[in-house]
């Protein structure tokens, strides 16, 4: 699974990082990005899905193959 953060939608409240710090990171200005080009290890998938649900801006999406 691969995810991406929509830079237009992200408001930088950090929720995704709180829910799933192994995949999401916060930059120097507070905005989120997915590490390792968004590649998600199988073990992280459940928490990533939680983060997708938790993002108030619906900024995180799964990249279609």
């Amino acid at each position: 699974m691969r995810v991406q953060v929509d830079a237009v939608k992200c408001v930088g409240n950090g929720t995704c990082y709180e829910v799933c710090p192994s995949v999401f990171a916060i930059d120097d200005w507070g905005y989120a990005y997915a590490e390792a080009d968004g590649q998600v290890l199988p073990d992280d998938e459940p928490t990533v899905r939680e983060a997708i649900q938790a993002c108030p801006e619906m900024a995180i999406s799964i990249v279609p193959d």
Partner: peptide, 12 residues
Amino acid sequence: HQCGVCVRGTAA
């Protein structure tokens, strides 16, 4: 000025 990271990042 649509993406937070671009606005703040290019200014930085």
